[in-house]
Write a protein that binds this DNA or RNA. Structure first.
Length: 588
RNA sequence: GCCGGUGUAGCUCAGUGGCAGAGCAGCGGUUUCGUAAACCGCAGGUCAAGGGUUCGACUCCCUUCACCGGCUCCA
């Protein structure tokens, strides 16, 4: 579900060689060369992998005798600065395959790249100083054109992204057209860290993860529980409005079920080990599909009943590899906002369109307007008939285009059981997380032999569409926390108003304000500690409470509250009724 | 799972082959205050777990677990 290929999305437009993006692209590519040059001077035995520019910088992979250390990075960066000061030009040369093989004789990874290039490819190299690299370019004119550069971190990375090939040492760096642009970028990184849902989750008391419970398993705290249940309430409401039926299903099912579904054959390594009960094996469910299929199969279905939309906030467990877990974004136990739509072939397009409309209504309600959409088509090996694939893929395409949505096509990237549309939302660091997915399934209806009575009195097989809109509640809330930097809009805020009595004698009035707010349906608390008002304001501010209501002698006398908003504005005193009206209006 | 890094109080982090430290939070007291941190005091630890080296290990070594940055995976 995670998209790790963010490098691929930063597609650079080379058409305008003078655009800032094109300049950065050349500069970063050049910085990668300068870095490789420095690495080779310190580690002459290093074997070079590849060193491309990325969306925000560049990296280069090396096979070295020992992993890099932070001290190495400093030394490498110092050498890079020397190269930049030396104002060496980048020189392009085109060479023959034979010359290239000779030139890179002691660089096995380069040789592999050369041998994999089609024969007709023109090989080019770029030189600066004493360094040479196989490279298409383009580059900046000279090393002096690299204005601001900084090495960021060290990581392991498999050669050619293949976990069966050697693991190389990767150095990430960034380069910008000015010192200011670099500083802006570094500030953005810091800001992203402040928005990290893992930090905010602790600071705001939303959720926690415990070694005692197990990795990737979330406990929601009271405040996070409020946010989650508000999201769920809204979700249920909107699903009923869109004619979904909401069901509940168990967390475990017998081996036979997963045998039929094919999960034991194809998904077992992601499933928790079975439990044995009465000499029967039960598995924790990694997916909800088989259960919803059982709902469908519980009666003989008529074409008149279709489309049938079965939805559930279904909690699933998947044994994710230990290295991939990440806060709320990638966990082992999570609740999908899952639904399965069973429909007639001629209903497919409208159903897909309906899901998209529902998706954008939901995402819009949570303030998301930036996302990327991917249409994934038939892979090499697949289930079902090509005509069905074409029909389904076309229906997805038309639904997207009717709504004028921009999307990328992931050719051959569909699941083996059907084409799909995925929608990804970015986190604070610009990493994309798949939330929405709409997937056709040509596999399970066969495996479970799903049918309905058609108008001619025969039995036909329904189309089946899986879909999740939020994806999982865990991931969605993670993205939501980062999206709002923890400052949830009023309707989602765990505490909407904090009543702050100035002195102990205002306690009773503060409680009455709270009671009044609660009777009007708002979530309010009183900070009744014997502390100074300033401290209570600070705490409420840090907890990102939207409204702080200060009450002292004056307010008590007038039946008023002094209103301060989270955004820092002191709105002054106003009658309590005015505040209630204001809050109600904001919730509209 | 793989490469690298990190685990010290609830949180953020110092520290050292020879008695375990700070700030914040917590608790007790004083203060009753007008828009982002009052003051005094107290308590808080199997230094992730297990094993080894050593007269002595939180510190050095090994194993395991968890987390962090990547990679891979993601029916």
């Amino acid at each position: 579900m995670q998209d790790d290929s963010m490098l691929d999305h930063g597609a650079i437009d080379h058409s305008d060689a003078n655009s800032t993006e094109a300049l950065r692209h050349r500069m970063r590519h050049s910085a990668a060369h300068v870095m490789a040059d420095a690495v080779l001077r310190i580690f002459p035995e290093a074997k070079m992998g590849i060193g491309p520019p990325t969306q925000d910088g560049f990296y280069y992979d090396f096979d070295v005798s020992r992993p890099f250390t932070p001290e190495d990075l400093e030394e490498i960066e110092a050498l890079m600065r020397e190269t930049i000061s030396a104002r060496q030009p980048f020189l392009r040369e085109e060479i023959s395959r034979g010359e290239a093989v000779e030139l890179f004789a002691d660089q096995p990874y380069k040789l592999e790249i050369i041998s994999d290039l089609p024969d007709e490819t023109t090989l080019s190299i770029y030189r600066h100083g004493g360094f040479v690299d196989l490279c298409q370019g383009p580059h900046v004119d000279g090393t002096a054109d690299i204005q601001a550069v900084k090495l960021l971190n060290i990581a392991g990375a498999y050669w050619r992204g293949d976990e069966h090939r050697p693991m190389l040492q990767r150095i990430y760096g960034t380069a910008w057209e000015s010192r200011d642009a670099l500083d802006d970028f570094l500030n953005r990184l810091e800001e992203a860290e402040r928005r990290d849902h893992r930090t905010l989750g602790r600071q705001l008391g939303l959720y926690s993860i415990h070694e005692e419970i197990g990795p990737g398993l979330i406990v929601w705290h009271p405040k996070g529980g409020v946010v989650r249940s508000l999201v769920e309430d809204y979700w249920r409401d909107i699903h009923y409005r869109h004619d979904y039926s909401i069901v509940y299903s168990p967390h475990i099912g017998r081996a036979q079920l997963w045998q039929t579904s094919g999960h034991l054959a194809h998904y077992r390594e992601s499933m928790y080990a079975p439990l044995e009960v009465d000499e029967q094996e039960y598995f924790l469910k990694p997916m909800n599909c088989p259960f919803h299929i059982m709902v469908y199969r519980s009666a003989l279905r008529s074409y008149r009943e279709l489309p049938m939309r079965i939805a559930e906030l279904g909690t699933v467990y998947r044994y994710e590899r230990s290295g991939v877990l990440h806060g709320l974004m990638r966990v082992r136990g999570f609740t999908q906002d899952d639904a399965h739509i069973f429909c007639l072939p001629e209903q497919v397009e409208e159903e897909v369109g309906g899901v998209l409309d529902l998706t954008f209504e939901l995402l819009d309600a949570f303030g998301f307007s930036d996302y990327s959409i991917f249409l994934s088509t038939r892979p090499d090996s697949y289930a079902g008939e090509p005509e069905m694939w074409d029909h389904a893929t076309e229906s997805l395409r038309r639904a997207l285009e009717q709504r004028s949505l921009k999307y990328d096509i992931d050719e051959g990237g569909g699941a083996f059981y059907g084409p799909k549309v995925d929608i990804k939302i970015q986190d604070a660091l610009g990493r994309e997380w798949q939330c929405t997915t709409v997937q056709f399934d040509f596999n399970l209806p066969e495996r479970f032999d799903l049918t309905f009575m058609d108008a001619e009195g025969g039995r036909s097989r329904p189309y089946m569409v899986h879909r999740a809109i939020l994806g999982s509640l865990e991931r969605f809330l993670g993205v939501l926390i980062e999206h709002y930097a923890g400052a949830f809009p009023l309707w989602l805020a765990p505490t909407q108003a904090m009543v702050i009595p100035i002195a102990d004698r205002h306690q009773e009035y503060a409680e009455s304000v709270k009671t009044k707010l609660e009777s009007e349906g708002f979530r309010a608390e009183v900070d009744g500690r014997s502390e100074r008002m300033n401290l209570k304001i600070r705490n409420a501010q840090l907890q990102k409470v939207p409204y702080m209501l200060v009450v002292g002698d004056r307010e008590q006398e007038d039946g008023a509250v002094a209103v301060r908003t989270r955004e820092g504005g002191n709105l002054g005193a106003m009658p309590l009724d005015d505040l209630l009206a204001r809050l109600a209006e904001e919730l509209e």
